[in-house]
Design a binder for these strands. Structure first.
Length: 254
DNA sequence: ATGGCTCGTGTAACGAGA
């Protein structure tokens, strides 16, 4: 079983790329973030024509998440039941006995922005909810754009980024509190190339110069991590015309 | 140097992303 996550930065713009990517990478489950579409505008027919079932939760202009699946989807939950949130950032579903959580963690903007405490509070509430989900779901996978680089090796220039949003100690502690639930960063289960990133700034030749960050993650419960045989970042679509600034991350579960 | 791209909104700049 292959599980993937991709922040597409507008599904309206990126739908052709998502369909092309799925044709080349027929994963079982694909979690999308930043669809930026209200539900009435979601391209359900095109995705179903590609052989995927789909559930989604969106809003105008910002945020929005979706789960695409080759297999039947059940027990869908929109947003964190423990956290009142006008922003559509979470979608959960059960697929083939695996509890899938698709998450678009707030960016935070900067550590002195009011969006920063929102991000930390949101993450604390996510932890509380995932702790509950873990009680009833042995197989739990939390995929998405976490907007946190876990370690300095996940940042192209750690000195320049020190203390800033995406790398600050409270954010890293919030991510560590998730892994402390028994969830493992699938990417780090395996040997990886140095300077492996999942996001590159559109500006200043970020991708060409590999000035990126690893902020998109797949967290797996012990039961899934034990059966995970690979986790890779697919840089290919970042090279396509009019790309998302994020690359897909794929985990293989045997 | 707070900009440098890209997107949505809406049809001009501007907020947001990271």
């Amino acid at each position: 079983m292959k599980l993937a996550t991709w922040n597409v930065n507008s599904l309206k713009v990126r739908l052709p790329q998502v369909l092309q990517w799925l044709a080349e990478n027929p994963v079982d489950v694909l979690c999308l973030q930043e669809t930026k579409l209200t539900d009435d505008k979601f391209p359900t027919a095109a995705i179903e024509a590609a052989g995927y079932q789909v559930v989604f939760s969106g809003q105008k202009t910002y945020n929005g998440v979706a789960i695409l699946s080759k297999l039947p989807i059940s027990d869908v939950v929109k947003n964190n039941p423990l956290y009142e949130d006008a922003q559509q950032r979470i979608l959960a579903a059960t697929i083939a006995g695996v509890r899938i959580v698709c998450a678009y963690v707030p960016n935070g903007q900067s550590i002195d922005s009011d969006k920063y405490p929102y991000k930390l509070g949101w993450l604390a509430a996510l932890r509380e909810w995932l702790a509950r989900e873990a009680l009833t779901h042995d197989k739990l996978a939390v995929l998405g754009d976490y907007n946190i680089a876990p370690e300095d090796r996940d940042v192209h220039d750690p000195a320049a980024w020190a203390g800033q949003v995406l790398v600050s100690e409270p954010e890293r502690a919030a991510l560590a509190a998730l892994t402390a639930l028994g969830l493992e960063d699938a990417f780090r289960l395996f040997e990886q190339a140095e300077k492996s990133f999942s996001w590159w700034d559109y500006r200043q030749l970020g991708f060409r110069l590999n000035k990126g960050m690893r902020i998109d993650h797949i967290l797996l419960s012990k039961a899934l991590a034990a059966r995970c045989s690979a986790c890779v970042i697919d840089r290919a679509p970042r090279k396509w015309e009019q790309p998302s600034d994020h690359a897909p991350v794929i985990a293989t579960i045997d």
